[in-house]
């Protein structure tokens, strides 16, 4: 069985936000508004976080793109009373919107704060409804949503492979953020396949995971910046 995962090379990230917007466009995540900003209720499955260090004029800034960690041992799954969120056999932490009862236990239990509750009905203008992706549901008020590694793309890739009577290849499936990343900072693939790039990179000395001590075992690995950035 495959185990999908991501490696994020922080040396390469230029903080451009292409991943963030590609994610929203692919997954029908509505843009925010000032009210959501005020109340911290805006939804963005992928975001580029920043860390500012030092004092003028010796400052440094780090950017790190942060999708769902798709933990091997996901704290959100443990608390879901209705099985709306679960770890699927290919390593993706999935969310079934129609099962979700909106209790938000999972949003509170995620140490990465990567689960988002729909406090508002998504407000698409009539014109903008045209750009909705039919492969992904629009969400309703009261359900929790999260990064799915563009799981619908995996479904499509599998069906295409079946149609062509062949095995699914690793490169057949890539999430929207990875596909668009201009600097090649995001790398995606099968963490179980010793020949894949993500397998190799996740084992190098620069690799680390967020809040590793919690034992969540994220399937998203980061590579630290090189000497140029201290």
């Amino acid at each position: 069985m495959r185990k999908w995962g991501m490696v994020i090379d922080l040396d390469r990230c230029a903080g451009c936000q292409a991943c963030v917007v590609a994610c929203k466009a692919e997954n029908n995540v509505v843009h925010s508004d000032p009210v959501q900003e005020e109340t911290f209720r805006a939804i963005s499955w992928m975001s580029v976080l920043t860390v500012m260090e030092g004092e003028y004029p010796d400052v440094k800034e780090r950017y790190f793109p942060r999708p769902c960690m798709h933990c091997e041992n996901p704290p959100c799954v443990k608390v879901c009373p209705v099985g709306a969120t679960y770890k699927n056999p290919e390593g993706i932490v999935a969310q079934v919107y129609t099962r979700c009862i909106g209790c938000r236990y999972c949003t509170n239990n995620c140490p990465y704060t990567l689960k988002y509750f729909n406090y508002f009905r998504p407000r698409w203008t009539r014109e903008m409804k045209n750009l909705l992706n039919p492969d992904v549901p629009k969400r309703q008020v009261g359900v929790v949503e999260k990064c799915t590694f563009c799981h619908h793309r995996l479904q499509k890739a599998k069906e295409d492979a079946r149609f062509e009577k062949r095995e699914l290849r690793e490169k057949d499936y890539v999430p929207a953020c990875v596909q668009t990343c201009p600097t090649g900072a995001l790398i995606f693939g099968d963490l179980e396949n010793p020949k894949s790039e993500v397998f190799r990179l996740s084992k190098i000395s620069r690799a680390f995971r967020l809040l590793e001590e919690l034992g969540t075992e994220p399937q998203v690995f980061y590579l630290t910046e090189g000497e140029w950035h201290g």
């Binding site: 451009c16 292409a18 917007v21 590609a22 203008t125 014109e127 596909q179 668009t180 201009p182």
Partner: peptide, 21 residues
């Protein structure tokens, strides 16, 4: 661009379907 798109390009369809048209 060799297959890559920037955030503005990714938002492009919002321009097409803007209500300010």
């Amino acid at each position: 661009n060799k297959g890559k798109v920037c955030p503005k390009g990714q938002s492009g369809l919002q321009l097409l379907y803007s209500s300010e048209r």
